Amino acid sequence: MKKKWSVLLCSLLLVGMLAACGKEENAAPVTTEPATTTDSTTPAATEESGKHADGSYYAEGEFDAASGWKPYIVLTVKDGKIATADWNFVSNKGGPDKKALDKAGKYGMKEKGNAQANWYEQAASAEKFLIDKQDPAAITLNAEGKTDAITGVSIHVSDLANLSKKALDAGPAEPGTYKDGSYHAEGDQFDPESGWKSTVDLTVANGKIIYAFYSGVNEAGDDKQAYSIEGKYGMKEKGGSASEWHEEAQAAEAFLIEKQDPAALAVNAEGKTDAITGVTIHVADFVTLSEKALEGAK
């Protein structure tokens, strides 16, 4: 009888050991498979790490000495992705931004240069490419600053790639309250004494005034700032001034860009101001015309 109980006990122990071994073999794939499978987790982590904070992004370049154009870009990010891109330029000679000028038929790459598409159309294609790829580095550049990555785009796109990266690296930029665009205002008539009619050109990007050009035009069609730069106005030579007219006008422009409000430039009864050191020219027209131009930006 004792022998029978011993055999039965050994049999039960053997069955238990085999069951335990079976459980370990069946459990092994459950515990090790997730550790070696990354397909389900890697994309989500990559997307999360590549997202940008929602908001507006802005960057600008410098004026090109040859062309006189200065590039800038405004990006908006929504749900972590680039949703819109506005790549544009302003001119050191005043006037509308490059897109507005081109849309008005005054840049003329197709008409004058036999291009397949006008500048603003090619710029739109380049902006769309950036939005599709979500990465400025996808705009590969050759030595000329052009790209073969975007079909039908023959213009220089180095500014688009570089400024997009600069804007995204800098992080969101607080937008202003104005409506983006180019704005122009001018006097009603030529001044009977000076012969000049004042003009103001403003460009707004990301809701802020990023560019201001205060000048004038005479009946001969001369631009007042250019006239002064060429030494024909002669405030220093003829009037003993410390600065030329265009230099003082540019100081007034910089003041407006800093303050973002023409009303910040207080004017006395003579139409001059004490708000800007070294500025002795009449700036009343600059204030009045800037306010007039910005009426369309509200």
Rank of each mutant, 00 (worst) to 15 (best):
S228R: 01
S241Q: 15
A226Q: 09
S164M: 08
Y233W: 03
M235Q: 01
Y183D: 00
P172R: 05
K166A: 13
K236L: 12
K236W: 03
N206Q: 11
A264E: 06
G216R: 04
G207Y: 03
I229F: 02
V267G: 15
H246R: 09
D169T: 13
K166P: 06
Q250G: 12
D223R: 10
A170K: 12
T177N: 07
D201F: 15
G195K: 14
E270I: 09
D223L: 00
D180C: 09
E174L: 09
S243P: 09
N206W: 10
Y178V: 04
F190N: 06
S228N: 08
L265E: 14
A205N: 09
E186P: 01
A173V: 15
P175N: 08
A264Q: 05
G181P: 14
G234F: 03
E253D: 07
D180S: 12
D188F: 02
E193I: 15
L202P: 10
A161E: 13
K166V: 11
A263E: 13
Y214R: 15
G221V: 01
D201I: 07
L163K: 04
G271F: 00
N218E: 02
W196H: 04
A167P: 06
G181F: 00
D201E: 14
Y211L: 00
Q250D: 15
E270Q: 13
A205H: 09
S228Q: 05
K179M: 06
D180Q: 04
Q189S: 03
N218K: 10
N206Y: 03
W245Y: 09
A263H: 07
D222R: 02
D188N: 05
Q250P: 01
L265W: 12
F213R: 06
D191P: 06
A212T: 11
G239W: 14
H246Y: 15
N268H: 12
G187V: 02
A263L: 13
E174R: 07
A269L: 12
Y211T: 12
V267F: 13
D191Y: 10
V200E: 09
E270P: 09
S164W: 02
G216V: 01
A249H: 11
A266Y: 04
F255Q: 10
S228W: 03
N206K: 08
L163D: 06
E248F: 10
N162C: 06
A173W: 00
G271N: 08
